Simulated scan of single mutants.
Amino acid sequence: MTTALIAGQGALPCIIVDELSAAGEPFVVAALQGFEPELPGQPVEVFRIERLVPFLDRLADLGVTRVCLAGAVRRPKLEPEFFDPRTATLVPRLLAAMQPGDDATLRTVIAIFEEHGFAVVGAHELAPGLLAPAGVPTRATPPKDGAEANLGEATVADMGRTDTGQACVISGGVVLAREGEAGTDAMLAGLAPHAPRRGILFKAPKPTQDRRADLPVIGPGTARNAAAAGLAGIVIEAGGVMVLDLPGVIETLDDAGMFLWVRPPGGGA
């Protein structure tokens, strides 16, 4: 079984490459033009959405049977002059999917891969260690009432209904910020520092999203940015958010006197 890693930007593709290499599994790396990953020495098959069907044929010729989408990619601008005849038949479908938001777009892309005979798997299925176990691994602990986490969960659920984001900042019972297209780090950077150690970053998947793509991610950079914004901690949904370099995240938060709560949906055990 050969896996095609459709890699975007950020640290996640490198982790998946390491996992596949360690397992001795054959794989190829591909990337959407303009969003090539930083994988020094790793050959990358670059493709355009406008020539998606020939690209799928190329994967089949390479013996690929399984596909994983991992890494940050923004919706590209489509250039009509580059469409081949077969991909052109998908244009109405692609355009319709790109209107609502990222989740609708990814659902359509996943469906197209499956219609061409490829199994689609999530990054967390190839690297299950990216999903941190439920609990509080930091020295600092969250408030016992969980009120801010409850509001964060409700806010992300509401955002998910309009396919607009996977994270928010809550402080004092108020939603200070909602994640937009620019992402979590941009949302945090846009916050002026508040009273020290107040508020949380809450991050979770959209309620109905296909978890094989665009599962939320945090890493040490997220922890540093949350600290710079004056937050008390980070709350993520257990089983729904990947953590890049969990030890590094814990160390960063411990140094800042902040907590990480890997919280089951609904706050249950």
Rank of each mutant, 00 (worst) to 15 (best):
M1V: 01
A4K: 10
G8Y: 03
Q9G: 12
G10Q: 14
C14I: 10
S21G: 05
S21Y: 07
A23K: 04
V28I: 12
V29M: 07
E36Q: 15
E38F: 00
E38T: 13
R48H: 14
I49S: 00
E50M: 03
R51A: 04
T65N: 05
P76T: 15
L78E: 11
P80A: 13
R86I: 04
T87G: 03
L90H: 13
A123L: 10
E125C: 04
L126M: 12
L131G: 02
P143V: 08
A147Y: 12
A154F: 00
I170M: 08
G172C: 06
L176A: 10
A182S: 13
G183L: 12
A189G: 09
R198C: 10
G199M: 06
I200F: 02
L201T: 02
F202S: 03
P207D: 14
T208W: 04
R212C: 14
D214L: 09
P216G: 14
V217G: 06
G219I: 01
N225W: 07
N225L: 15
G230M: 08
L231W: 03
I236T: 07
E237I: 03
G239C: 05
V241C: 02
V241N: 11
V243K: 04
L244Q: 11
L246M: 05
T252M: 04
A256L: 05
G257W: 12
W261I: 02
P264M: 07
